[in-house]
Design a protein around this nucleic acid. Sequence first.
DNA 1: TATTACAGACCAACCAGTCGGTCTATAACA
DNA 2: TGTTATAGACCGACTGGTTGGTCTGTAATA
Lengths: 206, 206
Amino acid sequence: MSDLREKIIKSSLQLFSDKGFHGVTVNDIVNHCDTSKGGFYHHFKSKDELLYVIHDTFISYVLNEANQAKKCYDRPIFQLHEMLKALVRVYDLYNEHIVVFNQENKYLKENYEILIQKKRDNYKEILQEVIKQGQELGEIRNELPTTITNMAILGMVNWTYQWYKKDGPKTIDEIASTYIDIIFSGLLTTEALEEYRASKLSMTDI
Amino acid sequence: MSDLREKIIKSSLQLFSDKGFHGVTVNDIVNHCDTSKGGFYHHFKSKDELLYVIHDTFISYVLNEANQAKKCYDRPIFQLHEMLKALVRVYDLYNEHIVVFNQENKYLKENYEILIQKKRDNYKEILQEVIKQGQELGEIRNELPTTITNMAILGMVNWTYQWYKKDGPKTIDEIASTYIDIIFSGLLTTEALEEYRASKLSMTDI
DNA sequence: TATTACAGACCAACCAGTCGGTCTATAACA
DNA sequence: TGTTATAGACCGACTGGTTGGTCTGTAATA
């Protein structure tokens, strides 16, 4: 991939995550990374395509991580642990992508929106399946409705984009550890919780 | 208050929550509620002011609810219970306000942004104080960092705007009940949790 | 020479906001 | 009661600035 293309993406990420997609003009972007309209439109069909590329980069990465987590562990409880760990850790890699992903998805043009929505749903399904299996195996409390639980977890984690700062007082590992603690204490059956706390994967070792 | 003013707010809520602030023109709004540019600008200084009014209506309401909850109960655990119940229930009253509030706050103009941020922070402080007091009284586990816990709860609840539909398969009370279950199981000390479960305010009675 | 990579002047559409004007209602007055 | 004065509510054509995108030209590269 070209050098300029990456520069444009990097600049736009910085600008979009700060002022929002509509708060940034194409001219703002090309000025910021010291190129021109010509340079921009040589690499991107439109401003909308750029927004799509940002979305896709992020969701594809996360989706891949989720699939890895499912493959590498066999018990739902550990799959969930791994997925959460991965999802929160992404914040140190893709902080700006995430802000744009959560803030500007409404402005994706029809075709692009469908593509992203598909992957988004795919991720949700994976998580949902893990929870359902956890319930079937008696690791996660059956009283909890699966879909609501699913969205509760996603909400807690995704909301991080609203307040997390890389140079802030809380490290991302500390945050991940707290989320996992709350979620596991909140979801697991007493037996599974005891087992989990006794296991190597206890809170201090995320 | 004038009739038209309310009609404009109602229309804009519908349109904004669907297509986003920048996806809706002032002409879209006045066409939707069958008025004119003149009518619009007679009631609002600018499109930005309209956005502010929507934000303020919602946050002021929620802030008031939170203060009520603090006043009406003396123990943190019950204050928290009441705050969560209230916050989730708002979804049936202010669904569209909430979508706009969470999606478009980046586009508030400087002055307005400061006013809203102040109330937003105020709400966070109230919740944070409840959690801290809960920890001091031994009702909430001390291992949990207060601020992260605070944001975890807010995230779980606020994320509801991303998926809740009034005519969907889940009622708002069911959702509130599940959130409270997860959060209380996740946060409370074993003693407090037992006490809570034994009390009238058990899950089935939210 | 042909192709790719970029520059930057330019254009057409769009959109928030304006402004002169109308219509209705109520108050003041004769 | 009939007439006029005044204010507020609302209308809609118009404008001026902005912005995404195009197009022609040029430099580098192969």
